[in-house]
Design a protein around this nucleic acid. Sequence first.
DNA 1: CTAAAACTGTCGCCTAGAGGAACTATTATA
DNA 2: TATAATAGTTCCTCTAGGCGACAGTTTTAG
Lengths: 220, 220
Amino acid sequence: MKAITKYWFLEGFNLFKKIGRLNMMKICELLEMDNIEKGNPIALNEAHRNSIFFLKRGSVKIVNTTNDSVKYIVKHGNIFGELALYDQEAATKEIAYALEDCIICYIEPEQMEQLMEKHKSLKNGVLKVYGLRIQKLERRLHDLLYKDSSTRIREFISEYLDEFGETNEAGKSIAKNLLSHKEIANLTNTSRQTVSNVLSTMRKEGVIDYNVKFFISDTK
Amino acid sequence: MKAITKYWFLEGFNLFKKIGRLNMMKICELLEMDNIEKGNPIALNEAHRNSIFFLKRGSVKIVNTTNDSVKYIVKHGNIFGELALYDQEAATKEIAYALEDCIICYIEPEQMEQLMEKHKSLKNGVLKVYGLRIQKLERRLHDLLYKDSSTRIREFISEYLDEFGETNEAGKSIAKNLLSHKEIANLTNTSRQTVSNVLSTMRKEGVIDYNVKFFISDTK
DNA sequence: CTAAAACTGTCGCCTAGAGGAACTATTATA
DNA sequence: TATAATAGTTCCTCTAGGCGACAGTTTTAG
C-alpha cells in the first residue's frame, strides 16, 4: 500500500514513465520521501548531502553556497541534485531551498547508479537531463553576451509565467510570485535595481501586472 | 593490420581505455578515419553533419555558425560533436575547423548509441564528458560575471600554455600560437582590441613572450 | 504589537570596456 | 613584386548598467 502511494507520486516524472509499473514498484521501495516547508533547506543534514532528488510537489531554488546567488529553479515534476552522479565535489557547492511547501523523494547516488544499470531508459533519461542542463547554460551565456539586461528580465518574466502560470476564467495567466527581485536579478544576471526598474516599466506599459503574491499577464 | 593501426590511434582516448582490447578492436571496425588539413572544416558534407568525432592528432576549434564566434577548442585526445547524441538540432549550429593538420575518427550517433548499450564504460565516459561540459560552461559564466576582461584573458593564456605548452631545455613553456586575437577575444568574451592590449602589457611585464608562431612563458 | 530585518522603488553617479578610426606589420594572392 | 587582405596596435569616445543611498513597505521574530 505504501508502495502504491509512492507509485502515485512518481507518476509525474517522465524519467520513470517509461520503465514500467513493476520496475517502478521495486524502485519505489528504495526511495525515501519527505515534506519540506517553505523556506527550509533540503538535505542540509550531512547524511543526504549527495542525494539525488525528485520533486513531486512545490518548487525549489538551487543556491550557490559560495556567493549565495540563485543558480536555477526547479519546478515540481523534475529531478535535481543529479550533479552528485558525476561530481560529488560540485554537488556540495549548491544547496536547495523550498520556495513553497514541497514533497520530495531522495535516493543515494550509489543506488541510482545501480538502478541505471538495470534500467536503460533511466540512464537515457539522466543523459537527457544533462543535455538539457548544457542547453540551458549555453542559452544563459548567449543571452548574457547578446541581450541587454532589460530584455533578459522581460524574457525571464514571460517564461516564468509560461512555466508557473495558470490561466484563469478571465483568460489571464497568473503565477505565484515566488522570487524576490534579488533572486530574479541572480537568475537574469542583472542587478536588483534594474529588475525593479524593468518590472515597474513593464507594469506601466501594461505588459504585466503584479503584486506581492502574484504575477499576472493578459495573454497567455 | 588495419584494425591494429586504428587501435593505436584510439589508445589516447581515455574513453576507450577501460573497455578492453578485444572490444576496442570490434569498435575500430566501425570507425572511419580522415586527415584534415589546417584551416579546413570538418564534416562539412551533409553526410557526416551529425557524427561524433574523436580527435587523434592536432587541434580543432568549434565555431558557432550563427555568429561565427569560437565556442571552444578541442585538444587531441578528446571527443567532440557529442552534442549530436542528445540534440541533432543543436549539433548543426556548430562547425569544427582544424587549427592544425588533424587526424580524426568519426562515428554516427546511431552506431554510438549501439556501442554504448554494449559497453557500459563507454556510456559512463560520455556521461562524464557531459559533466565536464557543464562544469566548463558554469566556470565560463562565473568568470564572465565576476572577473574583469583583463583577468579572463590572462587566465586564458596561462591555461592555454598549460594545455598546449611543452617545456623546452631552457625550462620555458612553449605553445604553438594557434589562435588569432579575435579568436581569443571570442573565447574570453572580450574584444579584439582588449586582447591585444592585455597581451602586450603582459609582454611588457615579462610575464609571457610571444610571436606569430609561439607563446612562451618562463615558469611552467 | 512593536522592533528589526528583509524586501521594493527611485535617483543619479561612475566606470569598465566595447567598438570606431587610423595606422602599421604581416601574410596570402595574383 | 605589387596588391589585397588580414592581423596587431594605439587611442579615444560613449554608454549600459552596476552600485550606493535612502525612503517606503512588507515580513518575521520575540
